[in-house]
Every structure is written in C-alpha cells, then in structure tokens.
Amino acid sequence: MTNILLIAFAISLIYMGIANRLSTYINILAVQGIILFGVSFIELIQINTINLIFILFETIVFKTIAIPLFLNYVIKKNKIVREAEPFLPDFLSVVIITCIILGSFILSNIITGVHIQKMFFLVAISALLSGLFIIITRKKVVTHIMGYLVIENGVFILSLSTGNKMTMLVNTGITLDIFVSVLVLGVFVNRIGNTFEEMNVDNLTNLKD
C-alpha cells in the first residue's frame, strides 16, 4: 500500500510540472499532505502514541489544511496573478521532471551496501530535485515557497524511511519544518507583499554587481 501512495506522490510531482495555475499548485500540496498522512500512518503505527499523534497532526492539520489555506490567503491578499509564469515551456518541465525521476531511480540502484527501502529513497530524491527545479524555473516568490514545501515533503518521506527506530530524528525534522515554514511564510511573504507592488522575483534583483 505504501508503494502505491508513494507512486501517487511521484505522479503529483509530474502533475506539478504541467500545472499552470497557482491554485492547482496549492491543491497538489494539500494532496501531498494527505498522501504523507497515509504513508506515516502505515509506516509508524507501531511507535508510541504521542509521537504518532504529533506526526499525524503535522501532516493533516499543518501540511494539508493550514499551509494551503495560508497560501490562498497570501495570494488573495496580495492580488497575485493566478498563473505560475514559468521560465520554461511546460512540456520541457514535464520532460525534466521525468528525467529527474529516471535519474533518482538510477541513483537508487547505483548506491549499494545499505539497507534502505528503495521506493522511499527514489521518491524523496525526486521530490528534492523537483522542488529545486520548481524554485529555479518559476518566477514568483510564492512558487518558490511551494518548491521549498515540496522539498520539505521529500525530506519527510526520507525520514519516514528510517522507520520507527529514529523517531527523534523525524520529530526534529518536523519541528524544523514547522518553524521555518511559519517564519518564512508568515513573516517574509507578507513583508515582501507589502513592500513591493507585485511578488515577483523581478523585484528582487536590485542586489547585483
């Protein structure tokens, strides 16, 4: 079952490549939150209850409900254009994300000698690289944050793959996740929205040589 959820996660990454509305991105992030909820529920059912509740709370309340709502609020409040405005054509985005998945697959097979669930590794590395790719190729500050959230989701999947031995690690990662996301999202996005007319990286190119 976990495998199917992880494949669904990877499909959501591909879909992110062709999505051209910000609302679609937000929906994808919410769906990813639900998928992470499913995966963590299946994988971590054996750990103690408080940790489990903490992790499930993080995935459902934070990733699936709070962040999408907040992003919607930011987009409405700052009157951001609804298109994602990538620098690349969508077709190329899909091709590149497919190549990323292919590359992660090859990487997961080259690396040997360590016992790891390869499916987790594959999806986590794909999410990391796709998130970086989205950050690089999209124009808006909001899409940068979305790319960052995709990276965080990848990290979450990878930390799940350490299994129930390493609950401390998972919790640390989650705490960081919440901390940084709240800070970055809450403080800076609104500040940037208030300071500049449009939340575009074009406005953030004054510092150069």
């Binding site: 494949i7 990877a10 591909i14 062709i18 899909v94």
Partner: peptide, 24 residues
Amino acid sequence: SHNPQFIFTITSISLLIFFAVLLI
C-alpha cells in the same frame, strides 16, 4: 499548445509504474 505536455505526462506516469514494478 498544452496537448503535448499532457500526453507526455501519461508517458511519465507509465514510466513511474515501470519503476515501481522493478522496485517491487
């Protein structure tokens, strides 16, 4: 102009299924 990327997405998804089968 959106059609090619949509159709390519299907190829990507089937590639994913292929990997999943390999890994499983």
